[in-house]
Simulated scan of single mutants.
Amino acid sequence: GIIGTTARWLVAPLLNALQGAYPLIEMVIIEATTTSLLPQLVSERLDAAVVNLPVDHPDVDTRPLFDEDRIVVVPTGHPLTAYDQLTLAELEPHPVLMPPTGTAFRDEIETDARRSRVTLTPLAEVDGLRLLTSMAFQGFGPALVPASAAPRYLDGDWVRIPVEGLSRRAVGIGIPRRSPPSAPTRAVIDTLVDLITTSATYHANIVPTAVADVS
């Protein structure tokens, strides 16, 4: 399983690497939100899943993969396009698209906002960062998203604006706690780690983080 914003840039290189190094591994990839992936990990319908961190579930173990910046994607013509960089105080007067309360991504944004003594107003709440970004691409309004949701090779009638005062989003790998990962699962995780380390050269907003042994 894998969250959509990470799937956009990681799935194709992962499949290419696995076909070369482990041609006998058969992969079935499920793209979904962290909210949807966690129950599938708990029920062991998934062997592993790339998810937003932190995950607080007694039946799921997680290991970090990478951190990435949070940005605002702003449609052309919106007043925020006048900024090259924003503070949370400058963002406060403008309603923004955000994930729902209770998701890790939203809860961390709210923590950062409280630290800066601002209150952000949701334009709409959408559980799915890739859908959230698409709504901004289509002109619905600005969206707070991870940087990988709007990679630099994509162009359109929108701009990316960094936001000072926002912590980075953490992404990791989750596995069912009750079942140790199989040899193929460990091979996939090792390949993921290698790819993310390499990809950091091409994705300026992604910072690889230490991954503990899952064997």
Rank of each mutant, 00 (worst) to 15 (best):
V50K: 03
P180C: 00
I196A: 00
I25K: 02
V118H: 01
L192R: 10
T103A: 11
P162S: 09
T197A: 08
E92S: 15
D194E: 13
R160A: 11
A143M: 09
R115L: 14
R169T: 13
S215P: 10
V214S: 12
I161N: 00
D213H: 12
D84W: 04
D155W: 05
G20F: 08
A113K: 04
V188Y: 13
P122M: 04
I189L: 10
T198E: 14
I25P: 02
I161L: 03
D190H: 13
P23W: 07
H78K: 06
T5S: 14
T33M: 08
P93V: 07
G141H: 05
A136N: 01
N16H: 07
L65D: 04
Y153C: 03
T191K: 11
D67V: 10
G1R: 02
I175M: 10
L192E: 13
Q19R: 14
D47G: 13
N205C: 10
V55G: 11
S215G: 13
V159S: 15
P93E: 08
T5D: 15
A150P: 01
V51S: 09
H57P: 12
D112A: 15
A212Y: 04
T103R: 08
D155A: 14
H57D: 15
R8T: 12
G139P: 04
T34Q: 02
L86C: 05
H94T: 15
D155S: 14
S215I: 00
A21E: 14
P39N: 07
L37W: 00
A89L: 04
R45V: 09
V73I: 14
D112C: 14
P146G: 01
V42Q: 11
V73C: 07
I206Y: 00
V188Q: 07
P54Q: 03
L129F: 02
L129A: 11
Y83S: 12
T87Q: 03
M135K: 12
H203A: 10
I71H: 03
P13Q: 01
A149I: 10
S182K: 05
H57M: 10
A113M: 07
L154R: 07
N52D: 12
N52G: 12
A104Y: 07
L132F: 08
I109C: 08
P93I: 06
